[in-house]
Design a protein around this nucleic acid. Structure first.
Length: 418
RNA sequence: GUGGGUGUAGCUCAGCUGGUAGAGCACUAGGUUGUGGUCCUGGUGGUCGCGGGUUCAAACCCCGUCACUCACCCCA
């Protein structure tokens, strides 16, 4: 038996980096006023089809979709935004306070071919803000991401930003783009030809060298922004500059989900092979209305948790220095029974204590204590017990002291609570 | 979905032109009838990913399949 393709166990030895990221993220989000939200892993397929877009790759071929016993079509969530928007509308949050900031951490599912930094079950750290149209909130999210990565000690990450325009300016852009593409048609790859009528925007993102060459002079959304979108984007850029957040304007950055408007960005790394995006986000001013709520501006991002951990592993091992305070070496049945009660009492006092119940030799138990990196070892042998005492050995200094049984637990607590 | 690379002990890997498996680490026991990390000695542990084929004989050659991995596509 083994895990299914693209799914994996995250084992205890690896978990400390995950916890470190979670802790920093939660702390930072809360400082910024975000509230945690937890949403279902399973939703009606319709939700994702309508929000992400029927002709996107995610919906067309990557979702885990199946019929439940009643025949309803359900899908394992491929991303978080759609569900959070659904929740915002379902609970009529706009009525009591339209301005909401959420974060969530959890698994997503996409049935792609696995490779480095890409899994079929992967984890995202997600943040969304509803009800604020100001461009300052766009820069705020990018600033927040920058701060989080800084706190985690990450360098070599770059923010790529772009503006995708809005329903007002997009038609004129699309017209110009299609005209341009038509003129270069014979130089484009098969995929790009196919994209022409499905999603021409995506052609700008093509990585085939010949296409890239053909498209250097392609019209960009940036050149067709309406007045409002242009002002918005300028504010984002100037604010980030004032905050000293490094970024580059990347007019080929096109996000793969249909709901994005205006600002879109990615935080990219060069250390993960082809999976350069560690985080990505964008504004989606039309989605709340599209899914049945009132017109509400919104914006959010997702961090690729797995990828973030992989980047951190390259620079930070962060091993636990002393996972164990005390190891009890008990020789003989009587000592084992006594040791059992001591260890439980010490555990109650939050002192990391372990012992071995197999009745092994002193040498074997000392080896085990060493393997577990215990700071101290308590040796309870027959000789000691007849004198109502045990030996406490400091594993670093090799110093040993004798402790009386009557005051044993209080003495130990005193030593470890220092 | 497409293409390349790789599957031998728990881990990292040897194994030549086919002759039916080996090292290091880890684990375990002992060297010290009660003291760890170093050292020495012994021991446990393998359907050679799986299934078929060729052959007197396959870890090795052929076919299929599964998994891992990298890349494309796309995304976090």
């Amino acid at each position: 038996m083994q895990t299914i393709r693209g799914f994996r166990d995250i084992l205890p030895e690896k978990i400390c980096l995950w916890q470190k990221v979670e802790k920093e993220a939660k702390q930072l989000f809360e400082a910024f006023g975000f509230k945690e939200i937890r949403i279902p892993i399973l939703e009606k397929t319709q939700l994702f089809a309508r929000s992400i877009g029927e002709v996107t790759d995610i919906v067309e071929k990557e979702m885990y979709t199946f019929a439940d016993r009643k025949g309803d079509k359900l899908t394992l969530r491929p991303e978080a935004t759609a569900s959070i928007v659904r929740s915002y509308i379902q609970h009529k949050m706009y009525a009591t306070d339209p301005i909401r900031k959420f974060f969530m951490i959890g698994p997503m599912f996409r049935r792609e071919r696995p490779q480095k930094g890409r899994y079929r079950q992967f984890y995202q750290i997600d943040a969304e803000i509803f009800g604020v149209e100001s461009a300052l909130i766009d820069s705020l999210l990018i600033f927040l991401l920058n701060e989080l990565f800084k706190r985690l000690g990450l360098t070599g990450l770059t923010a790529h930003i772009n503006s995708l325009g809005c329903p007002e300016c997009r038609p004129s852009f699309q017209k110009a783009l299609l005209k341009f593409i038509e003129s270069k048609k014979d130089r484009l790859c098969e995929n790009c030809i196919r994209r022409m009528d499905k999603n021409p925007l995506r052609i700008l993102d093509c990585k085939v060298p010949d296409c890239k060459k053909a498209l250097v002079d392609a019209p960009a959304t940036l050149d067709h922004l309406c007045r409002g979108c242009e002002d918005h984007f300028n504010t984002v850029k100037s604010t980030l500059e004032k905050q000293k957040v490094d970024f580059i304007v990347d007019k080929s950055l096109v996000r793969g989900l249909d709901y994005y408007t205006r600002t879109a960005w990615e935080i990219q790394t060069t250390t993960l092979g082809a999976q350069s995006a560690v985080a990505g986000g964008g504004r989606y001013d039309g989605l709340v209305k599209e899914l049945g709520g009132p017109q509400t501006p919104a914006i959010g991002f997702a961090i690729g948790f797995d990828r973030l951990v992989e980047v951190m592993e390259q620079i930070d091992k962060a091993p636990e220095p002393h996972p164990l305070d005390l190891f009890i070496v008990a020789l003989g049945d009587e000592a084992i029974e006594k040791g059992y009660h001591w260890s439980c009492e010490l555990n109650q006092a939050d002192i990391r204590t372990e012992m071995d119940f197999r009745g092994k030799s002193l040498k074997a138990l000392m080896k085990r204590a060493n393997k577990l990196a215990a700071r101290y070892v308590l040796i309870a042998g027959e000789n000691e017990l007849t004198q109502n005492a045990v030996i406490l050995r400091n594993m670093n200094t090799k110093e040993q002291v004798s402790l009386h049984l009557e005051t044993l637990i209080p003495e130990l607590i005193k030593i470890f609570k220092k």
